[in-house]
Design a protein around this nucleic acid. Sequence first.
DNA 1: AGCAGGATTACCATTGAGTGGGAATCCGGA
DNA 2: TCCGGATTCCCACTCAATGGTAATCCTGCT
Lengths: 261, 261
Amino acid sequence: MANSASGESIIGRFVKIVSAFDNRHKSMSVAELGRRTGLPVTTTYRLVNDLLLERLLEREPGGDVHIGTRMWELVSRGSKMLGVREAALPFMEDVQAVVQHSTTLGILDSDEVLYIERIGSAGTIVDITKIAGRLPVHATSSGLVLLANSPAAYQEIILSRPLTKYTETTLTDPAVLRRHLAEIRQRGFAAMPGVIVPESSGIAVPVFGPDNTVVAALSVVVPRNEDNTAARVPVLMAAARGISRALGWRGELKGALRQSH
Amino acid sequence: MANSASGESIIGRFVKIVSAFDNRHKSMSVAELGRRTGLPVTTTYRLVNDLLLERLLEREPGGDVHIGTRMWELVSRGSKMLGVREAALPFMEDVQAVVQHSTTLGILDSDEVLYIERIGSAGTIVDITKIAGRLPVHATSSGLVLLANSPAAYQEIILSRPLTKYTETTLTDPAVLRRHLAEIRQRGFAAMPGVIVPESSGIAVPVFGPDNTVVAALSVVVPRNEDNTAARVPVLMAAARGISRALGWRGELKGALRQSH
DNA sequence: AGCAGGATTACCATTGAGTGGGAATCCGGA
DNA sequence: TCCGGATTCCCACTCAATGGTAATCCTGCT
């Protein structure tokens, strides 16, 4: 589906171009953009011009281009995620005020955890979480909470793959994980010490949507030595319930009704 | 530049499609999408499929489509705005804790103010500001702060157009506005009672970037009757300085140096 | 079940937008 | 001034994109 010799659609090339920008490369010359994407020079320039016309890219004085405001605007107006993020923000601040380290909000996206918001006091802990960053489900507390509340079929897909062992405490045995997931589902939270970075541990709880499904995971990352789980879980749970309610969740009514059938 | 009868590029159509989604229409059937965009049926389906492949759009169980996670991710990783937003968030929370009404962060984007973040207590005041919302520069405190710190040429472009008078207090006379802008630039803040909605008034201050230019405006919206400007300005200014510093601003050094030449 | 009306997919001839190599031009630094 | 890279211009080729029409799939209604 494409006019190009390499057989890509314009949409594909568009994604390539936008993907060329990241945390470390927020702007670059068109020539460099061409190099990074591997697209032919002329093609790059033509496409970039189209994008500039639509203000999806913007040209800065030096000649370099960067992702345009329009792009952000389009996404923000129509994206469903913004609802969750906005509803969560005040509660996250509350959690952050108490826990003081690093509070994150993550959702499940194509077999990984995608962090859509993060609050962290200036110079805190080792926390590799970044906004719009991704981490594997099996090695994060958020991921395990999300996985535990996913359809069984999905769980099996994840569990049946080779799981990377990041640290000594990372769980990689499907059987052990399955047991853990059941526990998490029942207790309502996941506490994972040093699963991906040895020095810090994460605690996560589920956030519910109107239809009683889990839409996100709220979590805190704290230094492993002061990992006071018992005290933190209630704080997180209260915040998560607040977020859930703001999203239109009405307690566990539905679940109860379903059981009565 | 397009294959289409109507003479649009694919990029243009892509924008049309994404634009079809907004606050009130976060998901819809492909057919409706076609209607809203005015694109031929077949074309819509083909394009949507391309977008689904790249995960820029996502299909939900019912068959409706909505803007994909990938879209948000791409933008968030490369966009320059995120830096400002993230740096500002904690300070905005501080302001919000004191002022209690509604705190916003806005930037200048093609002759309007684009609000990139907003915090508001649950049920507060009349405040039409929305995240990713736009308002005219001449009728908002944020807009006036941004305009006051823009190149003179840009100011003149704005002032030379017909300016809508939203309420009795909206300034529309170029001469008066010019004087106001000078004042704002000198005093370092703008306080506008009921410029766009009669019942509420806004106070805004500039946020500086590393090169000492104004990159955003921090503002609060309060009920007009308790418009305690004198008390609010220092709070805002302190926060704005904090944000600026987080962005790499180093006081007014550069300005001072320039003067010494 | 059978039917109406819309959403979705399949088919297909047509064509001009997109393509990309190459050359000319425009920079900024040595 | 010269040089190397970035950017723009030029242009012939061609297949991806186009957009009708028609078939098929749903879904709710009678």
